[in-house]
Design a protein around this nucleic acid. Structure first.
Lengths: 198, 198
DNA sequence: TGTACATCAGTGAACGCGCGTTCACTGATGTAC
DNA sequence: TGTACATCAGTGAACGCGCGTTCACTGATGTAC
């Protein structure tokens, strides 16, 4: 219900600023509630401080706006994980572990965005730039770290799938079952990762 | 858009039949789309073949209806898992494994209900009969099977948490990323369960 | 240096829709007499 | 055995709301001359 000030129109030639502000606003709103379905075109316009119709100047419809948000945050999410892995040094197991911890931390701290990224179907096919491969960069980076840990004789793809699905499960169940008697998060993750990657 | 026939009113003394029919209809609709947020009181009434206001004869509001659906399917879900474990015989590892396979199968075959059960917060606290413990029966049964596998020297609670979160991850990611190059499901589950429970 | 005007960056009213919720009501049916 | 009537099991109209989308429009600002 945060009634934003009426936005000042952009200068000539800077019409694309509004596009960025719309994506910003939609991201903030998604991060708050996490429910993609609750994001409405009119609410985004209100948050930006602009007439509802102005959204149409930059997006065909709400789906394309949501896609823009997702694409942007997939990139950011991947960068966060890479940074965590790099900060952990060169040792493969330390890199993979740091990546896992960073994955869960991001998910728990950005509940709404995580929901938008991984708890809804990607989007109607005609809007998918490259079907099924959004977020593949994130997966592929983890697969490489894991392959470095286990060597060439183990199916690193299968292990990376275990890694991803298990961490995803940790994020989503903790988000949605806050009253469950969860173990300490660091203990849980260290034990889980040790069991999956060896 | 299935316009159901207008329902015939129940006989005297059988007013509770409508309550059951409402829960049935809401369950069918949830099983179809899976989005709790898309379930509307009016749509449920239409599916039942009854005036929208008739819902109020049996439920205070939509939340209480959704809770009724959840409670009912938690019971059914637990029974399915128990049956699978029992069908697997007495050997602890076989029982736990069967339980895991049945969990994932139920989730993938009943996408909508699984979403309703495990991908939304339980409900506003005043509606929770026993906060945080809905579904605890399902968890507890798995924990016992796992404890039988690993013996008394291992933290079976932690292992059961791994088991649950990992299987939940399998169900939800496969549901939402259908284009990902997933491994064969049985291979994935057998390998995953073997790594987690030992 | 001044000004007409094309273009850019939006706005605002209006529409039809489905929704939750309220309120007064209806009409079949079992039962007391 | 017949009937009045209380009660049960619903109905239907109406409300105000937020939504997506359309359409014609406005008004500031750069630029060509």
């Amino acid at each position: 219900v945060s009634t934003t000030e009426r936005r000042r129109r952009a200068r000539r030639g800077e019409g694309d600023k509004l596009r960025a502000e719309i994506v910003d606003a939609a991201s903030r709103m998604l991060a708050r509630t996490g429910e993609v379905g609750e994001l409405s075109l009119r609410a985004v316009a209100r948050e930006v401080g602009v007439a509802a119709t102005s959204i149409y100047l930059h997006f065909e419809n709400l789906d394309e706006l949501v896609l823009a948000v997702k694409l942007r945050y997939f990139d950011q999410f991947g960068a966060v994980l890479d940074a965590a892995a790099d900060a952990a040094g060169d040792q493969p197991i330390a890199r993979a572990s740091a990546r896992g911890h960073a994955y869960v931390r991001f998910g728990l701290e950005n509940v709404g965005l995580y929901r938008a990224l991984f708890m809804s179907e990607m989007l109607p096919p005609h809007l998918m730039p490259d079907a099924g491969f959004i977020g593949a960069g994130v997966f592929e980076a983890a697969r490489r770290d894991i392959a470095d840990v286990v060597g060439p004789d183990v199916d690193a793809h299968l292990l990376a799938v275990h890694f991803w699905t298990a961490l995803h499960g940790v994020v989503t169940l903790r988000t949605v079952r806050r009253n469950f008697p969860w173990p300490d998060l660091e203990v849980q993750l260290d034990d889980l990762i040790a069991r999956l990657i060896q």
